[in-house]
Design a binder for these strands. Sequence first.
RNA 1: CGGGGUGUAGCGCAGUUGGUAGCGCAUCUGGUUUGGGACCAGAGGGUCGCAAGUUCGAGUCUUGUCACCCCGACCA
Length: 492
Amino acid sequence: MAKVITPRAEDYSKWYNDIVVEADLAEQSVVRGCMVIKPYGFAIWEKIQNVMDGMFKETGVENAYFPLFIPKSFFSREAEHVAGFAKECAVVTHHRLMNDPDGKGIVIDPDAKLEEELIVRPTSETIIWSVYKNWIQSWRDLPILCNQWCNVVRWEMRTRPFLRTSEFLWQEGHTAHATAEEAQERAEQMVHVYAKFCREWMSMPVIVGRKSPNERFAGALDTLTIEAMMQDGKALQSGTSHFLGQNFGKSFDVQFADKDGSLQYAWATSWGVSTRLMGALIMSHSDDEGLVLPPKLAPIQVVMVPIYKTEEEFDAVLAKFKEISKALKAKGISVKIDSRDTLRPGFKFAEWEVKGVPVRLALGARDLAKDSIEVFRRDTLSKKTMPLKDVVERIPSLLDEIQENIYQKALDFRASNVEKCDNWDEFCEKIQNGKFLLCHWDGTPETEQAIKEATKATIRCIPMDSFVYEEDGKDIYSGKPSKQRVVFAIAY
RNA sequence: CGGGGUGUAGCGCAGUUGGUAGCGCAUCUGGUUUGGGACCAGAGGGUCGCAAGUUCGAGUCUUGUCACCCCGACCA
């Protein structure tokens, strides 16, 4: 019997881990802080990749690939950037092993020490900009719009499946532009691509906004973010897009001849989302029964469970399922017939629910006699019987309805947990209860830091497209004048 | 790096004042079942994290050591 999944507010990460394991998405890796993504989980990631890649290409972005190893000297050129990542890098120092001369086992060959250490990329700005230097001579070479899908390594002290693993899969876009305006526009464009993807494909509402200086990417002049609310009210930064100014252009000496003949440094952006999105997906929609997947990302959209006693009944049901399956596949719907004969229907029902399959069809002799079929939807856990002849026609709209319904559910949940707050005592209490609080902030890093130390809450963003309140007020903590409200929350 | 905890079967755990290792799930075999996580009967599976010590005898006591987990610090 599967482990019972019991969400408890005080132990949310345990619940989260249980769902990941039970739904067969991933398991703990043999390597500390890393993760094995299992086939069912990876199928979701592949879908995310495919869809997002298409969206990037529509904006003119092309894919490329850059090396995993970054020579230490490249990495250390941009001072702020290195300061941000230095504490969490895996470093290659040798290139050979040997048998231990004093006994059993394998040791590092001391003669194989590298002259210059290689850093396993925690992000690729440095190596990409050392390459861009060779690609850029004239304003005619710009813009360069490259993206790569790859893995990166960040040696975090504390890890969590999907949210913060030592190694993770992501996409990183790196663009070079002739003007600051164009780069800023690109950074903004990409954060909106992310927001659109989250809303339309993941059924996950996000707040688009700007990071405060404290929370900015190392080496960026401006960081744009999408912030999502998980079901425990905590915030999850789900994607970021950075305007890097000329910092990397200058550090890596990327200059180009402009239209007027002058030499200019290139302007940069970078933007990325990772397998953390899968964590967001799990924590946005899951319930006591396990995963709830938005139909547009579900590896299996419709699962069919035959119910039978005799072989004749099985054959009759299977024939009907194959017919339905063929018709659904013709409509582009992914279908699985669960014809495993060693498991009882009840077991299969429970298993596919844990895995979050949006729609389940059950068919037995009883239904066949009445020319009907049982249709179950995962989001509401409800089932109804409908005429067999209608089922193929109705499923596409049912999938759309589920996609929309779980978005609405998440949106309603967020709406009931975001509020304005102008009183410090109230702030301290509500922020602990998983609320997003819209508060005035005086704009200083000192105040933000003091609030963080007092409550663990941080400024998730200064909203740009929703929850925008540009009005005069007083800072929630310092009482100093403020021009706008920002989003405070406790984050993962 | 600080505070706490755990190492016993694939997984989750129990193991009394030291007496030679057990339960649930899973697995395998046979049968009956199959419309919401089946039941019965039987079987297989463990150098008790590692090392040393005390003892006639150590899963249990002592010392050392290693690993992992949780909380914090850290987390563009």
